[in-house]
Design a protein around this nucleic acid. Structure first.
Lengths: 336, 336
DNA sequence: ATGAAAGCGCTAACAT
DNA sequence: ATGTTAGCGCTTTCAT
């Protein structure tokens, strides 16, 4: 049975106190006699009263809400981050408003919704803002932290890992293993992570006098990566080593090579991924990869956001955390 | 630079109209002359005005917000569902408040937050409510839909798939393949899904005159499932077939059997999972499993929730959707 | 310590 | 079509 919303006024009447006494009884830093609070709580329980957070937010002008925006959850790396970050905010007494970036433009609508919602902070998972968008949000004084993308805007904090160095290590390592036809399986072509990993890779190869043998785009997605792999290995001169811009694609590539091309990893082809998702360490894949420090990234990002929310004088930071090569059995020295 | 919050009043002043004209200009079903709206919009743009959703919600008494509660995102099955459901609500103009069920009790706190937030509906992903909790929420007239768990409370809708039949098929199929030592790798011991899959399994085995050879608990989690598998195969009489209550555990079991016990799947052991997550169809795993109709489940659940939000006379439904056996290569007839 | 009163920023009658 | 008025349910001075 639907209760007609009970207000603090109703509770006050029943308890025989003023409405503000009720309000005080429900706030932690109360200047209320223990006796009145008891009375109020009893009345509240009887009526099934719950303070209306919306009314509270309106008057205190604080929503205690964080918006998290993400692109997709089918990369476990981001699902994990979302969970971690959410639990953190929840524990801090914040609510979490979740938005998915629409594929078909319309991202400005999301920004508008976020602003209207009076959120106190925005966390962007693998999403970036163009200058107009950044300015729009900044103009309202809403702190923003971006994870795993860069922005062209000084007012916004970002935390990511050292993609360039990761790519560099991958390139150098594969070349030093004696591979000659080293290919790149690219992520989203317009993402900063892809650019940086790619650039590092090229440079790492260069230190060994090598160059990128072939490149196909997998958009950081499993099925796209399967297709890209097919193109790569159907070529006249197929790769003998492959650096993939993330683990999901690396696993897709290994599956495709093994089961459609009858190739062995690492005997015929060495493979390196990026992220170190849990799956990467499963024995079937045992993927050599570059570990991103997820926990640190989340910690830093949430810390930054909280800092900017609480002290308005905090200056935005651009944090780059180190990646760690994880040597597993998807790479080996080229058999002569 | 932080703009001091601009209100509709400010816009009204600048546009030379009344405050309510501003309000009307920002509502779709407007009784406003095109000319006034133009003026208002111009002034709004100049000041950077955005309607405050909180104030709007307070007066309209509708938050246009749905709460989604989940336990964890490390099963891709639920990550996928969350994304699907979120996108749906977002597209319908609803906001999504995300909560993670705290492991250490404290779930009542989440319920309290949900009620205070004035959400219009609650979607529970693989989470159930005890009677007191169900009553609490129902008392406030908040529609609730539970996915993949059952409730002991008539006022709440639930949608799930036919776990019993799935288990039944698995038991019967494994027995009919000639296996004699068929074990069960259980999910969370107190979940309805586990009970039903288990019960169906036992019954399915029984039709073939077989019984469950061994049981270990994997809590629906990868690492727990690895441990459970070790226990299962370290036994004097290890299984020759295994039904796992979900795909994640089935994959964990296959990894462990293959790489720690040197067993072949399906030659030495047949394995069946449950869910049909994308990973299950990857060639390395090629897992025979019971496909849950995720899309239908989400569609039905969101439809039910929307129905209950919009017509208060909608009666709660308990929907059970059929599962589909997906025969892949993790099962085969026992070699004689 | 408590109550009265004044709004938070908006929508929705009600007049005009 | 537009303005005036009265709140939505709460927090927060300000007196007492």
């Amino acid at each position: 049975m639907k209760r007609k919303s009970v207000t603090s006024r109703d509770v006050a009447k029943l308890a025989g106190v003023s409405q503000s006494a009720v309000s005080r009884s429900f706030s932690s830093d109360a200047k209320v006699a223990e006796k009145t609070r008891k009375k109020v709580m009893a009345a509240a329980r009887e009526l099934g009263y719950r303070p209306n957070s919306i009314a509270r937010s309106l008057i205190t002008r604080s929503s205690r809400t964080i918006a998290v925006v993400t692109y997709s959850l089918d990369n476990p790396f981001y699902a994990f981050m979302l969970e971690k970050a959410s639990r953190f905010f929840q524990q801090q007494g914040y609510h979490l408003l979740l938005f998915f970036a629409p594929s078909d433009r319309g991202f400005d609508t999301v920004i508008d919704e976020i602003i209207r919602s009076q959120v106190e902070g925005v966390l962007l998972l693998a999403i970036t803002l163009d200058n107009a968008q950044a300015e729009e949000v900044a103009d309202f004084g809403i702190p923003v932290v971006i994870i795993n993308r860069t922005v062209n805007y000084a007012g916004i904090s970002q935390v990511g890992s050292d993609n360039f160095s990761g790519g560099y290590w991958a390139g150098q390592h594969l070349a030093s293993l004696g591979h000659r036809r080293i290919a790149y399986l690219a992520g989203l072509p317009d993402s900063s992570t892809d650019h940086q990993r790619h650039a590092g890779f090229i440079e790492g190869l260069a230190t060994m006098g090598a160059a990128c043998h072939a490149l196909e785009v997998g958009n950081y997605r499993y099925t796209d990566a399967c297709d890209a792999t097919r193109r790569l290995f159907a070529a006249k001169s197929p790769p003998d080593a492959l650096f993939c811009a993330n683990d999901v694609m690396a696993i897709a590539a290994m599956e495709t090579m093994r089961h459609e091309f009858g190739l062995m990893v690492p005997n015929d082809v060495s493979v390196i991924g990026f992220d170190d998702v849990p799956m990467a360490s499963w024995p079937s894949h045992s993927l050599t990869t570059l570990q991103q420090p997820v926990d640190q990234m989340i910690m830093k990002a949430t810390e930054l956001l909280m800092g900017q929310i609480h002290q308005t004088d905090t200056t935005p930071e651009h944090v780059t955390l180190p990646v760690t090569p994880k040597l597993r059995s998807s790479t080996q020295r080229l058999a002569r």
